[in-house]
């Protein structure tokens, strides 16, 4: 079901919502999409390309938000425009002359998706990813606990509340078991990859 985007939601409220639940990223994505795409269309007409860039921009912002130390120096729209513009410039240097010059972006914003992580061809990382996928496939709360703890940086209390555990200690114990499971799976997969 498509989310209803509140018209007057402020940037800080939106960030709060995302911190509250990752599912609220839909709001972020849909709210700024048209403006960002139109902004990029002035520089490039490749709709697939600009769509990809927009995806990456949202991911960049999302990862910044959940990292817990993100301070928004401009509006979210400006931030996203800036990321999109920079990325488009990188990919499309030949058409630099078409680069728009207006107040919709902030040149000081240099954030970009960290490609290094994606380009790592490391057996250990692959093993970990495979192990996580396996754990996710098994169902249960392990994947969610690990994701919320390691990726979304949620506190044990928040995880306990969101995943309906009695208290943070229970989550801590469960997280410890899940970590061991992940560790074991990753270790086995890693050994197979290296055989």
């Amino acid at each position: 079901m498509q989310k209803i985007i509140p018209n007057k939601i402020s940037d800080s409220e939106l960030i709060e919502l995302i911190l509250e639940s990752s599912s609220n990223i839909d709001i972020l994505y849909l709210k700024h999409k048209n403006y960002c795409l139109n902004f990029m269309r002035k520089m490039n007409n490749d709709s697939d390309l600009i769509q990809d860039i927009y995806h990456d921009a949202i991911i960049t912002l999302y990862e910044k938000i959940i990292s817990g130390n993100f301070v928004l120096s401009a509006s979210i729209q400006t931030y996203l425009n800036s990321i999109c513009r920079n990325q488009l410039l990188n990919r499309n240097k030949k058409n630099a002359m078409h680069v728009v010059h207006n107040d919709d972006y902030d040149e000081s914003i240099k954030d970009w998706i960290d490609d290094e992580i994606e380009n790592i061809n490391d057996n250990k990382l692959s093993a970990t990813i495979n192990a996580l996928e396996k754990i996710k496939g098994l169902g249960g709360k392990c994947y969610e606990i690990l994701k919320r703890f390691y990726y979304e940086n949620h506190s044990m209390d928040k995880i306990a509340k969101d995943l309906e555990y009695t208290n943070a200690d229970n989550v801590k114990n469960q997280k410890s078991r899940c970590f061991k499971k992940l560790n074991q799976e990753a270790f086995e997969i890693f050994n197979k990859l290296n055989d």
Partner: peptide, 15 residues
């Protein structure tokens, strides 16, 4: 075998 940053990296890729 896995440290925190390795798990984070795996999650980042997956997510």
């Amino acid at each position: 075998f896995l440290n925190e940053s390795e798990i984070k990296s795996a999650f980042i890729q997956l997510e």
